[in-house]
Design a protein around this nucleic acid. Structure first.
Length: 346
DNA sequence: CATTCGTGGGA
DNA sequence: TTCCCAAGAAT
C-alpha cells in the first residue's frame, strides 16, 4: 500500500468529527483555514461557529465593518487574519460578483491566503491536486523520510513542498491533505508521538534511526524584546473615558487607552511628567492611582510587555467622549480585555 | 531572507 | 519556569 493509502486509511478510522469536515462550501472552508492558521482546533472552534453565525455568507462578511470583524476575532490573536479576511470578502463580493475563486492560482490572490491555504481550499473544495504543507506535514515528512533540511529555510520550504506534491493522491487530494495533517496532529505529535502504534513505523526513517526527537530541524531562535506600556485610564465624574485606535504595529486598528510607551519602568512622578500626560490634562485637576502595583507581564511571540494601568480621575475632559458602557463594544487586545474584566469587578 | 504578527496549552 | 509550537502570511 502506498504512503497516501496508509495515511488515508488511518484517517478514515481516526479522524475527529470537526464541523468544517461536513461541508465543501469554499467560504466555510476558507474561514476555517484562516482561523486555524497557527491556532489549535480547541481554540479556534468557537470562533468558527461565531463567524458563520454572524456572517453566513461571504456577502454578509463583506457588508460588515472592519470593527465588527475585529470585535468577533477578539481574543484569537494574529489580527491581520481578521483584517485580511474582511478585505478578501469585499474583493470576492464586489469584484468577483460574490463567486468564490475555485483554483489555486485564483485563491492565492486573496489577501491572507498563501500557499498552504490556497492548496487546502483548492484540494478540499475543488479536488485540485495541490499538496498542503503546514507544521504537521513538515513533521511527518521530515520524520518518515529522515529529511533534516531546516523547515524554515528557503531550501527546506521548497524541498518539503516538492516531496508533499509527489506523495499526494490524485484520486482524493482533499482527503489526503487532511489525512497527513490529522496524522501529524494526533499520532505523529511533536512530543511523545505514538510510534509503537503507528501504521508507518516499519518504514519510518526517523523511527528506525531513533531520530524522532531530532526531526524536524528548525533553525534560528526568535529574539524577545521588552516593552513598557503605561495606559492612561481616564475616568470622569460623569462616567466617561477615552480609547484610541492603534495605527501601527501590533494590534493594528484595535483600541486601547491612551498609551505612553517608555524604555523602562516608570513611577508616578515620571508618568505625570510625561509630555503625553500633560497634553491631555493641561489645566485639569486630576487624581492618579496605579491600578496594578506590579506591572502586568503580557507575553507575545516576539515581545514581553510590562503594562501599568494608571487610573486618572477628573471632573470633566473634552476628549473623554466614550461612555464606559460603550467600551465593551470596541475590539481590544487581550491585555486590555483582561484589565477591563478586573476593573469592572471592582 | 529575516522579521513581525497573539494567545494559550503542554511538557 | 521556561520553552516549544499550533491547519502561515505579509513585509
Amino acid at each position: 500500500m502506498t504512503f497516501s493509502n496508509k495515511l488515508i486509511q488511518w484517517y478514515l478510522y481516526n479522524k475527529r468529527d470537526l464541523p468544517w469536515r461536513s461541508t465543501k462550501n469554499p467560504y466555510a472552508i476558507w474561514l476555517s483555514e484562516i482561523i486555524l492558521q497557527q491556532t489549535r482546533v480547541d481554540q479556534g472552534m468557537a470562533y468558527y461557529y461565531k463567524f458563520l453565525e454572524h456572517f453566513p455568507t461571504v456577502k454578509d462578511l463583506a457588508l460588515a465593518s472592519e470593527e465588527q470583524v475585529l470585535k468577533l476575532w477578539q481574543g484569537l490573536g494574529y489580527y491581520s487574519r481578521a483584517r485580511n479576511l474582511h478585505v478578501s470578502a469585499k474583493y470576492v463580493y464586489y469584484t468577483l460578483n460574490g463567486v468564490f475563486p475555485s483554483t489555486y492560482n485564483e485563491l492565492i490572490k486573496l489577501k491572507g491566503v498563501g500557499d498552504y491555504t490556497a492548496s487546502a481550499i483548492a484540494s478540499i473544495c475543488f479536488n485540485e491536486t495541490t499538496a498542503v504543507v503546514d507544521g504537521n506535514v513538515y513533521r511527518v515528512l521530515a520524520r518518515y523520510f529522515g529529511i533534516d533540511t531546516p523547515i524554515n529555510s528557503t531550501k527546506g520550504i521548497k524541498e518539503f513542498k516538492s516531496v508533499a506534491q509527489e506523495l499526494i493522491s490524485v484520486n482524493d487530494p482533499g482527503t489526503h491533505n487532511q489525512a497527513v495533517m490529522e496524522f501529524g496532529a494526533r499520532l505523529c505529535k511533536p512530543q511523545n508521538p505514538f510510534c509503537s502504534s503507528c501504521p508507518l513505523n516499519e518504514s519510518c526513517a526517523a523511527f528506525e534511526k531513533k531520530l524522532i526527537k531530532n526531526l524536524p530541524v528548525k533553525e534560528k531562535k526568535i529574539k524577545i524584546k521588552k516593552k513598557y506600556f503605561n495606559y492612561i485610564v481616564i475616568q470622569t465624574i460623569n462616567n466617561k473615558t477615552f480609547l484610541e485606535k492603534r495605527e501601527e504595529g501590533i494590534w493594528l486598528n484595535m483600541y486601547q487607552f491612551p498609551l505612553i510607551e517608555t524604555s523602562k519602568i516608570i513611577n508616578e512622578q515620571q508618568f505625570i511628567a510625561h509630555q503625553k500626560f500633560s497634553e491631555i490634562f493641561t489645566t485639569t485637576k486630576v487624581s492618579v492611582k496605579l491600578f496594578n502595583n506590579e506591572p502586568i507581564v503580557h507575553k507575545l511571540s516576539h515581545q514581553h510587555i510590562y503594562a501599568k494601568f494608571w487610573i486618572v480621575k477628573t471632573t470633566s475632559l473634552k476628549m473623554a467622549v466614550l461612555d464606559w458602557n460603550e467600551v465593551e463594544k470596541l475590539p481590544v487586545p487581550k491585555l486590555i480585555d483582561n484589565f477591563l474584566n478586573q476593573f469592572n469587578n471592582n
